[in-house]
């Protein structure tokens, strides 16, 4: 069964310049226990997609449409507030980018984890407290008991991110959404947090949706990759296939632009130009203004996804 089953999702925002289409008709399916990475640059629509999955965008200005939009069998688009609230944190939990601003500064860490547990589960305060402590211990926070009584500003970014992961796991969600969970952290802490997320995903048997701009994070953590650009999915497939045999020119260019581990000073392979402006997107394939292989068809219309391998699809006119 698909835990996440989305087709033809669009998200647009009403802004001064008019309607800005951030996500322009994407489909996404995630199986139980599967780990999927959504990779893209700023303006690709990856974070908006992630926020839309829990309906966390303010509507209006946001407007969401979809052919199908189900999470664990619930129609997200038609669900009322009560249904959405009971889904959030319980069925699908989220870890955010900046742990320093993700906690309410006037409540203790303990309060905020206990509050999450008691929102979804009928347990006493003491039980919730014991559970919160063991969760903190599980995310490798020493002195978990003391940390329960700390305020957010008393902890480092890495510790807060661990606490946020503990909080997200507190109701045993089936899906963990992680939106750039390591971007705001130091290099060594990043690696630790990624490893922790991977371990917990296996241990809890959750699905993981990892949203990131960093191909290194993708290479480290997920089984399947969805490459987004300009609000559309360019390519998706198993992580080895994407790294070994990328078929879309954008994916290929992105992989080439990684500085890599080669020795010595050298020029990097760059992608000319800049990401498209969502308020004024190019016609046809959003990548065509930067694509070396662009043809006239690319300027006119968006190609459909075609299978290029086992569970491996790409949307490029050259592959049609």
């Amino acid at each position: 069964m698909n835990l996440v089953d989305i087709s033809e999702l669009t998200v647009s925002f009403r802004q001064h310049e008019g309607l800005v289409q951030a996500v322009r008709g994407i489909s996404l399916r995630v199986d139980a226990g599967e780990s999927v990475g959504i990779v893209g640059e700023s303006g690709s629509g990856k974070s908006v997609t992630c926020m839309a999955m829990l309906r966390l965008l303010r509507e209006p200005p946001a407007r969401i449409t979809a052919g199908k939009f189900e999470i664990a069998g619930t129609d997200i688009l038609r669900a009322d507030n009560r249904t959405l609230a009971s889904l959030r944190g319980r069925v699908a939990a989220m870890v955010f980018q900046d742990p320093m601003t993700a906690f309410d500064p006037v409540f203790t860490i303990g309060h905020q984890i206990i509050e999450t547990i008691r929102t979804h589960r009928n347990v006493s305060k003491a039980e919730a407290r014991a559970e919160a402590e063991s969760l903190l211990r599980r995310v490798e926070i020493k002195q978990a008991k003391d940390v329960l009584g700390y305020y957010p500003h008393q902890l480092s970014g890495g510790m807060l991110q661990r606490a946020m992961i503990a909080m997200a796991l507190s109701c045993r969600p089936q899906i963990l959404l992680a939106d750039e969970p390591t971007t705001a952290l130091d290099v060594t802490i990043q690696a630790q947090i990624l490893q922790l997320i991977k371990e917990l995903q296996a241990e809890f048997g959750m699905s993981l949706i990892m949203v990131t701009h960093d191909l290194g994070v993708i290479a480290e953590t997920v089984d399947r990759v969805v490459v987004m650009y300009g609000g559309r999915v360019m390519e998706q497939g198993p992580v080895e296939a994407i790294f070994d045999d990328p078929r879309h020119p954008y994916t290929q260019a992105l992989l080439r632009s990684i500085p890599g581990h080669a020795g010595g000073r050298r020029r990097l392979t760059e992608i000319k130009g800049a990401s498209p402006n969502p308020a004024n997107p190019p016609t046809g394939c959003p990548f065509h203004p930067r694509c070396a292989a662009a043809e006239s068809a690319c300027r006119e219309s968006m190609p459909v996804m075609v299978a290029v391998g086992a569970r491996h699809d790409a949307a490029c006119w050259r592959l049609q």
Partner: peptide, 15 residues
């Protein structure tokens, strides 16, 4: 408009 309010919503707290 603070990010933590979004986090609270994502945890399933009622409005």
């Amino acid at each position: 408009n603070k990010p933590f309010v979004t986090v609270l919503r994502a945890k399933g707290l009622s409005e």
